[in-house]
C-alpha cells in the first residue's frame, strides 16, 4: 500500500539537524497525506461517501476525514452522484472557487459517464465541465473502491512536479 519513501532519508549522525530531500517529495508527501475532500454529494453515492467517512471504512486513516464544504479549504472535489444540467453550473462554480492545487474524483457511474441515466436532464459525465483526475466505477462504488481511488490519487499527486508549479509565477 505505502511504499518505503526513498526520497526522504535522514541519518542524524551525518546530517545532524538538517534533512536533505527533494522539494517535490516533501511537498507531495504533505499534500497526499492531508487531502481534504470537498464532498459534492449529489445523490446515492453521497451515502457511500458518508459510509467511507464513518467508522467502518474510516477515511481518516488517509488524512482525509476533514470534509470541507467550503471550497476554499478543500483540496479534492469528490463528485458523488448524478450531475444534472441544472446542477452542472454550480459544480463548475465550486470547482472554480477551490484554490490550487485541486483535484477531482468522479465517484460512481453517474459522475463518470452519466451512468444509467441517459436522459434529457443528466450531464453525461462530470468531465464535460470539470477536469477529472480519477474515475471510480460502481453504482454506487463500494467504500473500498473509493479508498482505492484516493490511494490512486495519492500516487498520481506524488508524481507531480510540485516545486516547479509552486515557483512558477
Amino acid at each position: 500500500m505505502v511504499s518505503a519513501n526513498a526520497e526522504l532519508a535522514y541519518n542524524s549522525k551525518i546530517e545532524g539537524d538538517v534533512v536533505v530531500s527533494r522539494l517535490d517529495a516533501v511537498i507531495n508527501w504533505i499534500r497526499t497525506n492531508s487531502m481534504w475532500p470537498m464532498p459534492m454529494g449529489l445523490a446515492c453515492c453521497a451515502i457511500e461517501l458518508m459510509a467511507v467517512a464513518a467508522a467502518r471504512f474510516d477515511i481518516a486513516r488517509f488524512g482525509a476525514e476533514v470534509m470541507r464544504f467550503s471550497p476554499r479549504q478543500a483540496d479534492c472535489m469528490i463528485v458523488a452522484g448524478t450531475v444534472t444540467y441544472k446542477m452542472a453550473p454550480q459544480v463548475r462554480r465550486i470547482y472554480d472557487q477551490m484554490a490550487s492545487p485541486k483535484w477531482v474524483i468522479a465517484m460512481g457511474a453517474c459522475a463518470s459517464t452519466g451512468g444509467m441515466y441517459r436522459s434529457y436532464a443528466v450531464l453525461q459525465g462530470v468531465d464535460r465541465i470539470v477536469p477529472v483526475d480519477v474515475y471510480v466505477s460502481g453504482c454506487p462504488p463500494r467504500p473500498e473502491a473509493l479508498l482505492d481511488a484516493l490511494i490512486k490519487l495519492q500516487a498520481k499527486v506524488s508524481r507531480e512536479p510540485a516545486a516547479r508549479q509552486l515557483f512558477r509565477a
Binding site: A43, T82, T84, K86, M87, Y117, S119, Y120, A121, V122
Partner: peptide, 9 residues
C-alpha cells in the same frame, strides 16, 4: 430539481 434525472420519461 437539481437532481431531476428524468425517471418518469
Amino acid at each position: 430539481g437539481y437532481l431531476h434525472r428524468g425517471d418518469e420519461k
